[in-house]
């Protein structure tokens, strides 16, 4: 039997206004323009894409990128195979393991269950963003310091779920961390050390230093 999830901060909710729906539609329109050869956009009729390959624009780690996809291409495959952003892993490919976790508009999601088309207009953040420009995010440092990994294959997904936990809760309790990471599986069994890495980050630690 399970307990209800620990209390969620209200602030996290208010941040997600429903304006996003509008931006999706608009920007999906923009993408149609970018992919004018593939899309048919007639006034008063739905826009359609595919089947077949077409180009879309995705905003990944703050940069707009043009990628060739089919309508059936997942965001995970687009990231890994088209952009060589292989931090997000394909492990279960069914939304059960969290290995493919990226942030979409600030929220961690399963990129394996997300069509690349559905990510148009969204802000996609991958684990690679945490070590860009020679800077290492404290969370990543603390994963290393706490040895929150063994084979390391689940680790990028764990980092991204942990990042969301920290961003949304600030100083999460152990129970909240366990709750927020419960969409991620680790086979080597590194959970406890991941919790410690998140806690250390919340306390302001940066790896072994302060």
């Amino acid at each position: 039997m399970t307990k209800p999830p620990p209390d969620q901060p209200q602030e996290a909710f208010s941040r997600r206004s429903f304006l996003k729906g509008a931006s999706v539609a608009t920007i999906a329109g923009t993408a149609a323009t970018a992919a004018a050869t593939a899309a048919t956009a007639t006034q008063g009729k739905p826009e359609t894409f595919g089947p077949g390959t077409h180009e879309i624009q995705l905003k990944v780690n703050g940069q707009n990128k043009l990628v060739k996809v089919e309508t059936r291409t997942t965001l995970l495959d687009a990231l890994r195979d088209q952009m060589d952003l292989t931090g997000a892993k394909k492990i279960c490919d069914r939304g059960a393991c969290g290995g493919c976790t990226v942030h979409l508009d600030g929220q961690p999601i399963n990129s394996c269950l997300t069509l690349a088309m559905d990510a148009i207009g969204g802000e996609i953040t991958t684990v690679e963003s945490l070590t860009e420009g020679g800077k290492v995010h404290p969370l990543v440092q603390n994963f290393v310091h706490c040895d929150a990994m063994q084979c390391g294959f689940c680790t990028p997904g764990m980092v991204m779920s942990s990042l969301a936990c920290l961003q949304q809760r600030g100083k999460p309790t152990r129970e909240q961390i366990q709750h927020d990471l419960s969409g991620n599986i680790c086979r080597c069994g590194t959970y406890g050390r991941i919790f410690e890495a998140v806690e250390r980050t919340a306390q302001g630690a940066q790896g072994g230093g302060k």
Binding site: K89, K90, V127, T131, D147, A148
Partner: peptide
Amino acid sequence: GLAKASGRAKYTYDIN
């Protein structure tokens, strides 16, 4: 550890 936690380690699955 840093290669793994940063997502930059290239496993076989990641070779392109």
